[in-house]
């Protein structure tokens, strides 16, 4: 073995990073912590297979990435009723008349008060994570794997067992809901305050 693993230093050297990686993809604190623990367990069990051709951290992240996919696969395969949980009213557009398919007056995107440093703001980050948590699980899974984990559309479809058109419907839903959630809780509010 070229580079020996040092499990006795794992928590000190890698747990911050692994947790940071997990929480920006899982959004739920307890679940992210569990995944970090599980990553270390699996890594210990698979120690023999570490060839030393990547760094210890890269190797651990690869294990965590697989856990993230499994986390979402499990979530998506749960019962329909649970999929509905946290699902916002999806009628963003009018459903009849000449203007069918156009924005409902009250749900139209408004001009946002963009703030330079909102991302560094803790309050904003908390709202963002809350909005992500509120996404229906299938839609959230698609978004995270596609955008945060940067898998190709084909890979996401394969892992979650969905069709390509289904993926785009989910992505569309995520953007509509996320946009509205942030507008109501942050970008719209800030404007009124100033």
């Amino acid at each position: 073995m070229a580079i020996p693993l040092k499990p006795e230093k794992w928590a000190q050297e890698h747990s911050d990073y692994l947790y940071g990686y997990a929480i920006t993809r899982i959004y739920v604190k307890d679940d992210a912590l569990d995944l970090v623990q599980e990553t270390f367990y699996s890594a210990l069990k698979a120690r023999e297979s570490f060839k030393g051709d990547s760094s210890e951290r890269t190797w651990l992240i690869a294990i965590l990435k697989r856990k993230i996919i499994d986390y979402y696969r499990k979530k998506v395969s749960r019962k329909e009723s649970e999929l509905q949980q946290g699902c916002a009213d999806e009628n963003y557009f009018t459903t009849s008349g000449f203007w069918e398919g156009h924005w409902k007056e009250e749900r139209m995107p408004k001009t946002w008060a963009y703030t330079e440093n909102s991302i560094e703001n803790e309050e904003f980050e908390a709202i963002l994570k809350k909005c992500m948590e509120l996404l229906p699980s299938k839609a959230g899974a698609c978004f995270t794997l596609k955008v945060m984990e940067e898998y190709s559309s084909e890979e996401v479809c394969k892992e979650l067992g969905i069709t390509a058109s289904n993926l785009w419907t989910m992505m569309h839903r995520v953007k509509l809901q996320l946009r509205e959630c942030l507008e109501i809780n942050w970008f719209g509010k800030k404007k009124r305050e100033h």
Partner: peptide, 12 residues
Amino acid sequence: IFDKLKKSADKV
């Protein structure tokens, strides 16, 4: 925002 969020992983 999500690009920034990705990069914030090592600050946690």
